[in-house]
Each structure stands twice: as structure tokens, then as C-alpha cells.
């Protein structure tokens, strides 16, 4: 399932979508950045409520497919600009991290059927 397909399935609002054709292979949820770098896998969707500039670095270095911002948190314009420049997909949702993870799990399962 691509990031663009996930955005449609979960009614996500794109904040930065420079590489919507990236394929998602699973997910990781967390707000402690080193924990995410230690545990998230390449091509995961990363669910978080963090919005600072370091999120973009962590997403880039961890090579995740997209960052899903829960609870409708909104990054600064500088963070959005950097996401676009570094090919990092950022999308937001009013759902909590948990509800977003549940919805993502359903969407990935349906897509693999």
C-alpha cells in the first residue's frame, strides 16, 4: 500500500507529500526519537505526536515511508519545508496514536488481501 493510498483510506491530511508512491510495509509508534531509530524499520509508517525539526532527521535517517502525526498536531512551516526538501512524507489525523495504529493495521490488512 502506498502512502497516497493510505492517506485516502484513513482520510489523512497531507502536510508534506513529496513521495506519495512510497510503499508502506508496517508501522512503528513512538515519541522518543532514539527509541524510534533503534526499533523502526525501513519503509515503516511512523506514528508520533512529535513535530520538531529532529523528527525530519530521524525519519530521513531511519528511512521510514511516512510520518503520521496523531491528534492533529501541526509542525512549523520550517519543518514542513524541510520535509519537502528531504522527501519526507508528513500526514496528520485527528485520531489518537492508538486509534491511528488500529486504523492503519486494518488498512494494511485489507490491502494485503
Amino acid at each position: 500500500m502506498t502512502v497516497t493510498e493510505l492517506a485516502a483510506a484513513l482520510s489523512l491530511t497531507p502536510v508534506a507529500l513529496p513521495d506519495g508512491e512510497r510503499v508502506i510495509n508496517g508501522a512503528y509508534m513512538g515519541d522518543l526519537l532514539s527509541w524510534v531509530m533503534g526499533r523502526a524499520r525501513a519503509d515503516n509508517a511512523w506514528i508520533t505526536i512529535m513535530t520538531n525539526m529532529n523528527v525530519i532527521a530521524v525519519a530521513s535517517l531511519s528511512d521510514v515511508a511516512c510520518v503520521l502525526l496523531a491528534e492533529d498536531v501541526m509542525p512549523d512551516q520550517a519543518v514542513i519545508d524541510t520535509a519537502n526538501a528531504r522527501d519526507i512524507n508528513l500526514l496528520r489525523s485527528p485520531l489518537s496514536s492508538y486509534d491511528l495504529a488500529v486504523a492503519l493495521s486494518d488498512a494494511l490488512r485489507k490491502a494485503s488481501l
Partner: peptide, 15 residues
């Protein structure tokens, strides 16, 4: 508050 300081830096470097 920035999401660091979880005590995972050096362990990740080793990992």
C-alpha cells in the same frame, strides 16, 4: 522535551 535523552543513544550506536 525534544524527544531525546531516553538513554538509547550509545546502545543504538552499538546496535
Amino acid at each position: 522535551s525534544l524527544g531525546f535523552g531516553a538513554g538509547m543513544g550509545l546502545p543504538n550506536m552499538k546496535r
